[in-house]
Computed example of a mutant assay.
Amino acid sequence: MRIEFESEVTRWSARVDSWFFATLPEDLSLEIRELPAPPRGFGSLRVRARIGLTSWDTSIFFSGTAFVLPLKKQVRDAQGIEEGGVVLVDLDILEV
């Protein structure tokens, strides 16, 4: 399943080392939750993500009302992504 969405980049600073995320739209997240997928820790799903020319394999996690995509430092640096910026994400869900 291939998805494209835009998201503001947010920081989760509950830990000393800050984590940055793109959040999938709530309606899309609800559709994804209905897909048959093998059970994984934290309700995660394996995905291949792309922002600009950078692609990577990771997982999305359901958090509250939507899935979130972690944006690792290598990706943020390569694409000039900063907190509060808006990113266009192409996402392939690998487990359905």
Rank of each mutant, 00 (worst) to 15 (best):
F42M: 11
T65G: 12
P70S: 12
S29A: 11
D27R: 11
A37I: 15
P39A: 15
R33G: 04
R50V: 03
G52E: 00
P70H: 12
L53K: 07
L30T: 13
I60T: 07
V68A: 07
R33H: 04
L69P: 11
E31N: 13
G41E: 14
K73Y: 02
Q74H: 03
Q74N: 05
G43V: 05
D57G: 05
L35V: 13
R40P: 01
S59R: 06
P36T: 08
F61D: 04
G41F: 11
F61V: 15
F61K: 03
I60G: 05
I51N: 07
S59F: 10
A37R: 15
T58D: 12
S29W: 06
S29F: 11
D57H: 09
L35I: 14
S44G: 06
T54L: 02
R33F: 05
E31F: 12
K73R: 14
G52I: 00
L35S: 07
G41K: 14
P36H: 05
Q74C: 01
I32A: 12
T54H: 04
G64F: 02
F67M: 07
L45P: 01
L71P: 09
T65P: 00
K73G: 00
S63E: 09
V68M: 13
S29L: 11
S55R: 06
L53S: 07
R33M: 09
L35G: 05
K73H: 04
G64M: 03
P70A: 13
I60F: 09
G41Q: 06
V47I: 14
K73I: 04
K73S: 10
E34F: 00
